[in-house]
């Protein structure tokens, strides 16, 4: 599901988003420009990072969104019996759009669209990180397998892709992988994992894998399989 959504997003002309102090959407059509953006971003002190968005409660995140239901024209109300409970959320600060149609109730579709928005925010909005003296944030430690040498026993059991908290960890992991220009082995070192173990983690989630491979492709690296 996430996969097809991403595809349609790209078909619709979406490009990578960076948070900037002005919270503007900065398109980056070519890999070259892409790197440039990243460098610029590395020096910007982002007051409203994607981490901030992701740690918002559902209500507050919803407040940042424009909600549309795809109602066709017509009088509606008692005149109409159509289970068109589709929900489309547009996150105003980033312009990211998430939608859900498959459920009968608008309530559930709203919840699915919001969950999807969280994933998209994690995947599409990058924050620059400082590699000097890098220590992974807790949410990243939580998605690492127990064998990571930097993961203390107090971190708790590993959080998998089905857990809503996975998005935050995935976001931190992507920030790191972008900072090391797509090198899984370098990222693995910083996370106390073997390259193989980190690859397996990346491959365990389709959207994470696609995101990493897209970056690697832009650097002329081979995709992870």
């Amino acid at each position: 599901m996430a996969q097809s959504l991403l595809k349609s997003m790209f078909a619709g002309g979406y490009s990578k988003l960076f948070t900037s102090p002005a919270n503007r959407r900065i398109p980056s059509p070519t890999p070259h420009q892409f790197q440039f953006q990243l460098r610029i971003n590395a020096f910007s002190t982002s007051s409203n990072s994607s981490r901030d968005f992701l740690s918002l409660s559902d209500e507050l995140l919803m407040d940042q969104c424009e909600m549309n239901t795809f109602k066709a024209s017509g009088p509606g109300g008692q005149h109409r019996n159509k289970r068109e409970s589709a929900v489309r959320l547009k996150h105003s600060p980033t312009g990211i759009i998430a939608q859900a149609v498959e459920d009968r109730s608008q309530h559930k579709n709203r919840a699915s669209a919001l969950a999807r928005l969280r994933t998209l925010l994690a995947l599409k909005v990058r924050d620059a990180i400082d590699l000097d003296g890098y220590t992974p944030p807790l949410e990243l430690l939580q998605i690492l397998p127990a064998k990571s040498t930097i993961r203390g026993s107090d971190v708790g059991s590993q959080i998998g892709p089905n857990n809503p908290k996975f998005a935050l960890g995935m976001k931190a992991l992507l920030d790191l992988i972008y900072a090391v220009n797509g090198s899984v082995s370098e990222a693995a070192k910083l996370l106390g994992l073997s390259t193989g173990a980190l690859s397996r983690l990346i491959l365990s989630d389709d959207s994470l894998r696609m995101e990493v491979n897209e970056l690697r492709a832009s650097k002329g690296m081979k995709p992870l399989k």
Binding site: T69, G76, G77, Q78, R80, N81, R83, E84, S85, D103, R104, S105, Q106, H107, K108
Partner: peptide, 28 residues
């Protein structure tokens, strides 16, 4: 109507039973 066929409508976070003779509640 589909809702009369299955005998329910999903409305807010409820699943309400409906049948012929009762209006199917609308999203509005």
């Amino acid at each position: 109507p589909f809702q009369y066929i299955v005998g329910c409508e999903h409305w807010r976070d409820f699943v309400l039973c409906v049948e012929e003779g009762v209006l199917i509640p609308r999203p509005e």
